[in-house]
Every structure is written in C-alpha cells, then in structure tokens.
Design a protein around this nucleic acid. Structure first.
Lengths: 218, 218
DNA sequence: ATATAAATTTAGACTAATCTAAAAATAGAT
DNA sequence: ATCTATTTTTAGATTAGTCTAAATTTATAT
C-alpha cells in the first residue's frame, strides 16, 4: 500500500521533473512540499526502497516507471476533478486547486472512469494543463497564449494564465469560456490589440487579455 | 484542526449512539472501528480534552453539541456523495459505501453545498437513511418497508434492505428506482403479494420484494 | 588547488496513532 | 456480600512522518 504522503512526494517529483523526465533535487522537493530537506531525504530513501524512485546520495531523484504511473494517475485525478468542479459545480478556475488536492487521493478506478465519462473525456484542465489518459500518457500540450496566434488562425480556449477574479469576470461577461472556439480576425500593430471571433460574434481584445488566455491552435 | 482519525471516531460515536443521543462504550467503538479498546480509550480522552465528547473513566462517551455538529457534517457529506455516485456516476446502491467513506472527509463547504444543489437537495441516501441538513438537523426518517403500506397508500422509494446485485437488477428491470413514486393498488392475503402502480403502470410484486424496499409514506 | 559557500545527509528527538500485556474497575451470579 | 467474569484503563513499546542541529559532500570563486 501507498500512503497519502508518499503519493504527494511522487506527484511532486513528477511535476518538478517535467512529467518525470528530469532529476529533481531534494531541496526543490522540500520547497514545493513545504517541508525540510532532511524530511525529504528520509522519504526519498523510502520511496527508493519501495521502487518508486531512483536515488543516489547527493544526486537527486528520478521516478521509475512504477513511480511515473502512480504520479500520472494522481495528476489525472486532480485535473479531472478540477474540470468537474468548474463544469458541474459552478466553481471558478481559481478556486479549484485546493479541493482537487484532496480529491486526487480518492481511490476508486470506477469512480475516476465514470467521472471521465460524465465530463465527456476532457483532455485539458481549467488551467490548460493536459490530463493524462488511463495509461498515464499525456497528449503533449501545444497550449499557447492567444497573443501568439497569427491572423486567421483558430484555437480552442483551454485555460488562463491570470487567475484573478477580475479577469475571470471579464471572461464571463464576454462569454469566453473553457472550450470556446476563437479565431483571430485581425491584429493591430499599433497597440497590439486584436479582433477575434467567438461564438459567432467579433470583438476587440487588448494585448493584456490575449497574453493571459491559453489556446490550443487547430 | 481536526484530524481524519478524530473525525472517524466522532462519526462512529454519533452512529452507535443513535445520532448522538446515547452513551457509547469504548468496546463498541473499538469493534466498529476495528481497533483495540486501549486505542479507543486514548482517543476518547483526547476528544474529551478538545471538547467533542463527554467522558468519565469506565462510563463510556457521549457527544457534546460541538461533537454532534462535526458528526452530522461528516454523515451529511457521506450520504450526499452516495447519492451523487448512484445518480450521476452509475454506481449501484451496494458499491458506494467504501468510496463515500473516503469522500466524506473532503473539506469544502462550497463543494458540499453545490453538490447538494446539483442533486436537487435529496433528503435520503440510496440506502434510505436520512441526510442531515446544513445545520445538522435530521428529518426523522419515517422510512418503512413497502410491505407495511395499506391498500391505496402512496410512498416514495428511498432505499433497499437487500443490497444483492440480483435484487438491484430486478429493480432496474422493472424501472423501480430511488425516488420512484409507488402506490399500493391492492394486497393479496393468499400469498402476501401486492399490486402496485409505478410510473403509471401496474405490476404485481411478491412479499419478498415488498419486504426489501424502503419507502416514505406520503 | 584550496577555501568557502551551498546543498544534502545523518543522528537523535518529537508527535499522533496504534499495539500488547498487565492492572483496575464494574457488573453479574450465587 | 463476595467471588468471578467482563470491561476498561494504564504503562510502555512501535511506526510513520516530521523537526533541529551537526556533519558531510558538492559546487564555486579566486
């Protein structure tokens, strides 16, 4: 059996190491988890014994295949729950993280598969981050800032960079939501604003807005 | 702060003591929680210090008002999640308990209120047990077995006694579900079967079925 | 190459929750 | 009322996860 604490360490190593590909220092884990480096050393040793990480003294840790699977599962659950909270329970994009931190540890394969189905198999969470599939694979995120799209390019809105409630209110007001299709009608060199088409209507948005909206280009 | 373990002890005392009204022995808590009596003594002492229970050595424990509130909250969450699992995620009535044991500890008032709304403010869980409201009050359950209803009486289906999958399949097949309105058309003294009307159609059910379906009479 | 700074690990102690085994209190039977 | 069985508590040990402070290793600057 794996404990909740162990799961959190494994998840942290996964995320700090770019989905488990890089070596992660004990200090950076300590910072992320808000604990002391000495505690991390102890835990990483234990995780190495259990076969979840590779570890050599003073050399940092990487995840084993077994560790990556655990981590991808936790991240998958976290992000699916975030989508659920936003789509079904009227949460805004900046309120969901804390609760998803709790929900990600609920153990039930059927639960998570049914949740996935209820949400219609989303590929990204409300912050635009990709959701690992059942086998832990990640559709490499090509999420980019709306600002980086060329004229006539199209994209689907997958998240926000600025999660302030002021910005979220602005988006609500203009009916820009997760999943909205946006196309760039024209760009204005003068002030870097752009005209976009969304839900069939055109509107002008400032550079600030365009630099805080993530889209996946199509 | 209250720990997950403390919450489980408080919940157990609440349930063994009929919603916190009776005194509960340390031994019975130990049996319910699957731990040793000595562990219970330690924990009950700690809960008494924190003001959640009243406790005198050798005299068992009762919940304080503060303890009852905590317990009612946990039970409320447990039962709402059970409804969610059955209504929204296609779980059957006998699969939900274990998962709800985990979900009941998720902390977020908004989450539980939104869940309540999503489910349209249910008053009973899939086993027919009442769901405490926001302030911890319980609508006293008048759930009775369908078999006990008189001719022409009406009731809403709120749960099952037999949770075997055979019985649940029978119910599914005949479109008898949580919330179905059932009226007793006639009773047959000969074999104790009864004719009921459900979803506008009449059908005959055996005594066995009638004795395993909980309804709330209207 | 050596000194110093920074990162990391070790050693030993602490807390929450548990256990076993022994002691103490209560309840039941005569 | 006294003995006995049962229940409950105490005492002391154990485990997971954490901490502080000291020791060790690695990295950096000259």
């Amino acid at each position: 059996m794996i404990t909740l604490t162990e799961e959190n360490y494994i998840k942290t190593i996964y995320q700090l190491g770019k989905y488990g590909t890089l070596t992660v220092s004990t200090n950076s884990i300590a910072e992320a988890i808000e604990t002391k480096a000495s505690s991390v050393t102890d835990m990483v040793k234990k995780l190495a014994e259990k076969g979840y990480v590779n570890y050599k003294r003073y050399q940092g840790a990487t995840l084993t295949a077994k560790g990556k699977k655990i981590a991808a599962d936790v991240v998958r659950k976290h992000r699916l729950w975030e989508v659920f909270l936003v789509e079904k329970l009227n949460f805004s994009w900046d309120e969901v993280h804390e609760i998803a931190e709790q929900l990600e540890h609920i153990k039930s394969e059927k639960l998570i598969n049914e949740l996935d189905k209820l949400l219609d198999y989303p590929t990204h969470d409300p912050h635009g981050d990709p959701i690992p599939d059942k086998s832990g694979d990640i559709k490499k995120s090509d999420k980019v800032l709306l600002f980086s799209l060329a004229e006539n390019a199209k994209g689907v809105c997958v998240g926000v960079k600025d999660t302030s409630s002021a910005f979220l209110k602005y988006l609500d007001k203009h009916k820009i939501a997760l999943g909205s299709e946006i196309s760039v009608v024209s760009r204005e060199d003068f002030d870097d604003s752009m005209v976009i088409k969304i839900n069939g209507t055109e509107m002008s948005i400032s550079q600030t807005v365009a630099n805080n909206l993530f889209v996946i280009e199509e």
